[in-house]
């Protein structure tokens, strides 16, 4: 680990907007066996969802002319799935000013208080959707029980067991 990283973690706080967890609507997610070199909304409902077929061997679809076979994976018991988005700095500032009074009051307030919990350079996470299951797709074969993601989902329960307090006898 580089010291620069540590500094950054020290300085920035990430806040979760709790209200967004309550309002997050359920959504259908697809995990594809490829990386799409873009990060933005896509017309999944028009191009992908209508092309999914239920076959005897499982779900089938194609993406960019390649055959995908898939299955539904449940989020493990005790966990909940959320799609999280990091607010841009500009959005954070906008919200802040929108919810506050005049600028003069603001300045006074800041002088009086020590350090606020939320600072202009902090970042904010917000849930945009929730899920209890997702579709896992494999290239031509159903990912099956050995899929990496399934393994990854077993980590939280193991982590909880490792970090649990051991009773002292």
């Amino acid at each position: 680990m580089e010291s620069g990283d540590e500094e950054a973690t020290e300085k920035h706080r990430i806040h979760l907007r709790p209200a967004t967890l309550r309002d997050a609507a359920p959504v259908t997610l697809h995990l594809l066996p490829c990386e799409i070199l873009a990060n933005r909304p896509a017309p999944v409902g028009r191009f992908f969802t209508p092309a999914i077929r239920q076959r005897p061997a499982g779900l089938e679809v194609s993406f960019r002319g390649r055959l995908l076979r898939g299955e539904k994976v449940m989020v493990p018991r005790g966990l909940a799935g959320y799609v999280m988005v990091m607010d841009e700095k500009a959005e954070v500032l906008e919200r802040k000013y929108a919810s506050r009074g005049s600028k003069n009051d603001d300045e006074k307030e800041q002088q009086e208080r020590p350090e606020p919990m939320e600072r202009d350079f902090d970042r904010f996470l917000r849930a945009t959707a929730s899920f209890a299951s997702f579709h896992l797709w494999g290239l031509e074969t159903v990912p099956g029980p050995d899929a990496k993601v399934r393994g990854a989902l077993t980590w939280p329960s193991l982590a909880a067991a490792i970090h649990a307090q051991v009773p002292e006898d």
Partner: peptide
Amino acid sequence: RFSWRTAQSILEEEAEGVTWE
């Protein structure tokens, strides 16, 4: 037919890149 060269070259120019496993 995605497998046709014509289709592939249009995708290379106008669509996002995709890396397969």
